[in-house]
């Protein structure tokens, strides 16, 4: 049984401008010791999916209108709030994009790690303090006894993200959701943080959902990848398949927009056109208006996500044509 299974999740936001279907029929699974990469541009619904798992969607205006989120076989969406709270930060930890603002400025770093421990475990304050310092050491913060007493504003961005990881992992969760954990950090620090997450995953054996808009990050860390576009998963497969055998035109476009040193090219490929607004998705395929392969079928009928090759899911009417016509240099170059 999968550790965490998201099934046909629908999260809508009921705004003044209409209903924004931010997550529309999204399914994916995460297993133990496995990293699922979720990639897509901002607004595609990848973060909302993650927040839905945590049940942290701001309500109103948001609401989870359908689907299941099975964690160890239990549907999180059906749990009473108190039981869900016992899971948050305990069984499922989460870290966020903005380490600069994700820590509370009025409490010490140690205090904030301790809080998480004391919330979920019956330990003394003394014990909690020891564990907090231990966590700081684990996430590679030098002089943890000293840092324990410091306030967030005294730490650098990378350090703060380490503290966030320490908070998220302080109760040995079985799932870690990392929502763009490195986007706001310097490139060198990015690599360190990803490395740290990988390492801790190996020792703690947790499943990781790594949300990012950066295909480079996915390549380095993920085992499987879900590509999201306009509230849907458009392609879902093992990481190698995504890079060497992309079957959705959007994925192909994404890969083409990565600059490559060894390929001489005047300019990067871009995807023409714009993403439809989530309050007004078209009838057919959401990508059709930008898609070089689009036919009248695409405008009329929404493609379902189906397994077209073993373990490789695509939501495209013309995946077979993509496979033939996609720019091969691009695929091979990866």
């Amino acid at each position: 049984m999968a550790l965490l299974e998201v099934k046909n999740l629908r999260t809508y936001f009921f705004t003044d401008d209409g209903v924004a279907k931010s997550v529309d029929d999204v399914s994916y699974t995460v297993n133990r010791k496995e990293t699922l990469g979720v990639v897509g541009e901002s607004g595609c619904g990848k973060s909302v999916t993650a927040l839905s798992i945590m049940r942290l969607i701001p309500m109103p205006p948001g609401r989870i209108v359908g689907g299941e989120i099975l964690f160890d076989g239990v549907d999180l969406l059906k749990l009473p709030e108190d039981d869900m709270r016992a899971i948050r930060g305990n069984k499922i930890g989460m870290i966020f994009q903005e380490p600069m603002t994700s820590l509370n400025p009025v409490f010490t770093v140690g205090n904030q790690i301790e809080e998480s421990i004391l919330l979920h475990q019956k330990v003394s304050k003394e014990e909690a303090k020891n564990r907090a310092i231990e966590m700081l050491r684990k996430v590679g913060i030098p002089a943890p006894e000293q840092r324990y007493k410091e306030y967030p504003h005294q730490l650098s961005g990378g350090m703060r993200q380490r503290v966030m990881i320490a908070i998220a992992l302080s109760c040995n969760p079985s799932v870690l959701i990392a929502d763009e954990p490195t986007t706001a950090l310097d490139v060198t620090v990015q690599a360190q943080i990803l490395e740290l997450i990988n390492e801790l995953q190996q020792t703690l054996g947790m499943g990781v959902i790594l949300i990012t808009h950066d295909l480079g990050v996915i390549a380095e860390t993920a085992d499987r990848v879900a590509v999201m576009y306009a509230s849907h998963i458009v392609e879902y497969s093992a990481v190698n398949e995504i890079y060497f055998n992309p079957l959705h035109p959007y994925t192909v476009g994404l890969l083409g927009s990565i600059p490559k040193l060894h390929i001489e090219s005047d300019r990067l490929m871009t995807i023409e056109g714009t993403v439809p607004v989530p309050t007004a998705y078209p009838v057919g395929c959401n990508f059709a208006s930008r898609c070089p392969y689009a036919t009248p079928t695409c405008l009329a009928e929404e493609p379902a996500l189906k397994e077209v090759e073993t373990g490789h899911f695509v939501a495209c009417h013309h995946w077979d044509e993509v496979k033939v016509r996609r720019p091969e240099h691009l695929v091979e170059a990866n």
Binding site: E41, S42, G43, D214, A230, P259, T270, I271, T274, V275
Partner: peptide
């Protein structure tokens, strides 16, 4: 302000949905 250009290495050169009205 949602960046119109790639924010970091290897990101997407696609406009944000907020601007696509």
């Amino acid at each position: 302000v949602t960046p119109l250009l790639p924010t970091t290495q290897g990101t997407l050169a696609v406009t944000a949905p907020e601007l696509a009205t």
